[in-house]
């Protein structure tokens, strides 16, 4: 985009959005897609590791602790590079940046979600487990009918934090060259020489997306709330 006289920021934003909007939309959708993949995979991993940690054998607890420590104790960017480059080297299995990125996000988010789920599962007090046992309920029936319906409600507020955190962390995918919102913004900024406006605009997209999402989660939380089940974990 070449202009004789520099445009004022507002006019510039309008003009670059008009010109680049297909890329911006692509970047935003990739960001959202990666966030949802990471959260969904992390949800399954998080619940399973939390159940394993609360009810499992000693060996299971040790393995889960190792997994959680690794992903919570190292930077996401390092994890992304590690998985993208080391898995092909170690296994001969070749995977593209998108798959490597998605898997890493799942593993990373699972480690964080495990903590939230564990807190929520433990918030369902032991006396209720004893009561379920006295009715003759099996462990599985107790999980399905007593523990999870409560834990899944209790976990919504902390889980929203993980959504926000992971959603914003997807910008780290830039190191794998994935064309998400941050990466696209960087290209546009480099082409237009207007980093201020471009990154400002990108920030606004992140901000709006996260704010609207949080409102939706708040709404869901209110919708499924049960009196007396508010627990802070």
């Amino acid at each position: 985009m070449k202009t004789a006289a520099p445009l004022d920021p507002i006019s510039f934003i309008i003009s670059f959005v008009t010109e680049y909007y297909p890329f911006i939309i692509e970047g935003f959708l990739t960001t959202v897609e990666m966030t949802f993949l990471g959260l969904a995979g992390g949800f399954v991993l998080g619940i399973l590791s939390a159940l394993g940690d609360v009810y499992g054998t000693k060996l299971m607890k040790v393995i889960i602790a190792g997994y959680v420590e690794f992903f919570r104790g190292s930077p996401l960017i390092v994890q992304l590079l590690f998985f993208y480059f080391s898995i092909p080297a170690l296994t001969g299995l070749n995977w593209d940046a998108f798959t490597a990125g998605a898997v890493t996000l799942m593993l990373n988010s699972g480690a964080y979600q495990k903590g939230y789920f564990k807190g929520a599962i433990e918030a369902v007090f032991k006396d209720q487990l004893m009561a379920a046992k006295s009715l003759g309920m099996t462990f599985r029936q107790t999980l399905t009918h007593v523990v999870l319906p409560q834990a899944l409600r209790i976990v919504i507020p902390p889980w929203t934090n993980e959504y926000v955190s992971l959603g914003l962390s997807t910008s780290a995918l830039i190191v794998l060259g994935i064309r998400e919102l941050t990466n696209i913004s960087k290209s546009i900024a480099a082409q237009t020489f207007r980093p201020l406006e471009v990154y400002l605009f990108a920030s606004a997209i992140y901000f709006l997306w996260i704010t609207i999402s949080m409102k939706i989660f708040d709404w869901i939380y209110e919708k499924v709330k049960i009196p007396g089940l508010e627990v802070n974990i």
């Binding site: 369902v124 007090f125 006396d127 209720q128 004893m130 009561a131 379920a132 009918h145 007593v146 319906p149 409560q150 409600r153 049960i226 007396g228 089940l229």
Partner: peptide, 8 residues
């Protein structure tokens, strides 16, 4: 001793 009801 505690009512131990399912709170949900």
């Amino acid at each position: 001793q505690e009512p131990s009801l399912f709170r949900h």
